Amino acid sequence: MIIKESEKVGLKETVVSDLKKEIIAFANCQGGNLYIGVKDDGTIIGLDNPDSVSL
């Protein structure tokens, strides 16, 4: 499964210092989902078989 970044989906490879800003931005809009452990191209990292895990 590949996840795509959009207005309601944020992707971060690791926990970054500006993570609070991302959360606040979603809270000030219509909400959304922030996925940590996902590259900008949508590839899930840190799992041997990411398709076997449900989101």
Rank of each mutant, 00 (worst) to 15 (best):
N28P: 05
G10L: 10
K12M: 09
I36C: 06
D18K: 10
V53M: 09
S17R: 15
D41G: 07
I23D: 02
D40C: 07
F26G: 02
A25D: 12
Y35L: 11
I45T: 15
E7V: 10
G42D: 05
E22T: 13
S6M: 06
D51A: 14
S52L: 13
S54P: 07
V38A: 06
I23L: 13
V15M: 12
E7T: 15
G37R: 03
Y35V: 09
G46M: 08
I44E: 01
C29G: 13
F26M: 14
L11R: 02
N28L: 10
N28Q: 13
N33V: 15
G10I: 03
P50S: 08
M1V: 14
D48C: 02
G37M: 08
M1I: 12
V38L: 08
D48Y: 04
M1Y: 07
L47M: 13
N49E: 12
D48T: 13
V9K: 05
G31E: 10
G37D: 08
C29W: 01
E22V: 10
S54V: 12
E5P: 07
V38Q: 06
I23C: 05
I3F: 09
V15F: 11
K20Q: 12
G46A: 10
L19R: 01
K21T: 13
D40L: 09
G32R: 01
G42F: 02
N49G: 04
D18V: 06
I36F: 00
Q30I: 02
I44H: 02
I45H: 03
L55M: 09
K8I: 01
L47S: 13
S52P: 01
V38N: 04
E7M: 14
I24Q: 12
M1E: 13
M1W: 02
P50M: 05
D51H: 12
N49H: 14
L19P: 00
S17K: 15
V16P: 02
G42H: 04
K21A: 15
M1F: 09
L11E: 10
L19S: 05
V9M: 04
I3R: 04
G37L: 08
